[in-house]
Design a protein around this nucleic acid. Structure first.
Lengths: 231, 231
DNA sequence: CCAAAAGTGTTCAGGCTACACCCATGT
DNA sequence: ACATGGGTGTAGCCTGAACACTTTTGG
């Protein structure tokens, strides 16, 4: 830690990779906003903005998320800090990237954003992005895939009540591989972290599916004893 | 991304958690420097300093490491960015933390630092640290433990030629649990990533130990095929 | 010949993988 | 009655855990 404070300073921003899951299409999606200003005017970009001196990084991420996409109370975690010198053509900007997981329940809110246009894109059909946001998105995807395997964060992308098939589709989309139905069910149920509800999910012309909810309290207890989720 | 540039800016620093491993004592160690200036004058702290506008974050971390500890060519990876508002009593400072792994071969260099006093501390005997550096160190330890289990970064803490017992002691110190000798050897050798050398390591009054080196080329090939290290 | 660490195989249990059919519903 | 997804059990294999003695050296 040096004692000199007189050098020019980099600007500091946060950018958020917001993931959502569309159960109908079994597709992992990302929320992007259309830029109204140069540089990269009319390009799609990650929601984000400048960090204020009186707010923490987490606060800044939540604030920008709320301002630009109307999303609140989502799972939010710091991802990585991007600091190459030329990532912003105007001047030096260092960006602390976050990734967020949203439940479909919250998506309606996300649609009604104020000024900028916001839209969900399947991760397989991402348009060209502003700045180094494609790199940030890639980093977030890698992290999400890794994390999904040993922490129960998949539930953050599903409604509070979900079927095992929805959960399996989610894992398959994120990990990019098909999974065996029987083995998948055996494994996720073996932890006793999924509570079967009295309700069923009726849809289409076939047998209704059992609905479950995730039990976060029980998970906390297990986790403190050194339990690893693993799928 | 907003278009306003006129707000006051946070200062941006990098801090490095430098790990080393003392085979003789089988102890994981951290390199700390004594602060010569307020605040926290005479406290121990992580090496670090301000990021210049014309250098990347990685460059800043390497530069500070070299300036303050004479260490170069070490394994260096971004850890997490710490941005609570009051972490520095003087003003708003956001710090991008890195962790570094050094081989004992480099340690001699580390001793001969210029002005500030630098010293290795076993992770079990860390003195009170300046700022939020204790939190940063904890975060680094958690990361190191996690990473050691599924990526071959342990070799970054050993000399280029090492014995299996040294490797086992390293894993035991970092993970904090004793490991079974036969099972450990079976597992690390099963990947064929350790090349036995023609030399042995003679020490003390007992049978000499076979020396090995890690084969990074072979590891790269395996990794690209989706191989996971795992111990 | 003694002390000290190096080196080496087998057995058992539990978890992972592969795999095919019946069930409940709406039309 | 038929089409559609929901739901279930078993057998073989492989991996991980437990465990004790011989070997080589220096003093």
């Amino acid at each position: 830690m040096k004692h000199t404070y007189e050098y020019p300073r980099a600007a500091l921003t946060v950018d958020c990779v917001v993931f959502g899951f569309d159960s109908a299409q079994a597709a992992l999606q990302v929320l992007l906003i259309r830029r109204g200003l140069a540089p990269f005017k009319d390009h799609w970009a990650l929601p984000g903005g400048f960090v204020r001196v009186e707010e923490t990084l987490d606060d800044a991420a939540r604030r920008e998320l709320e301002e630009e996409t109307n999303l609140s109370t989502v799972f939010l975690e710091q991802l990585y800090t991007f600091g190459t010198v030329d990532r912003d053509p105007r001047e030096r900007v260092v960006s602390v990237a976050y990734y967020a997981l949203t439940k479909p329940t919250d998506h309606t809110a996300a649609a009604s954003t104020d000024a900028a246009e916001a839209r969900w894109f399947p991760v397989t059909e991402i348009p060209p992005l502003a700045f180094d946001h494609a790199t940030i998105l890639d980093t977030a995807l890698v992290r999400l895939r890794g994390k999904l395997r040993y922490e129960p964060i998949g539930f953050e992308l599903l409604p509070p009540k979900f079927t095992l098939t929805q959960l399996q589709r989610l894992y398959e989309s994120v990990l990019g591989t098909p999974l065996d139905k029987r083995n998948f069910r055996k494994k996720v149920l073996s932890h006793n972290l999924l509570v079967p509800l009295k309700e069923t999910h009726r849809e289409g012309t076939h047998r209704p599916a059992q609905l479950f909810r995730f039990d976060p309290v029980r998970y906390e207890k297990l986790r403190k004893k050194g339990f690893l989720f693993e799928i």
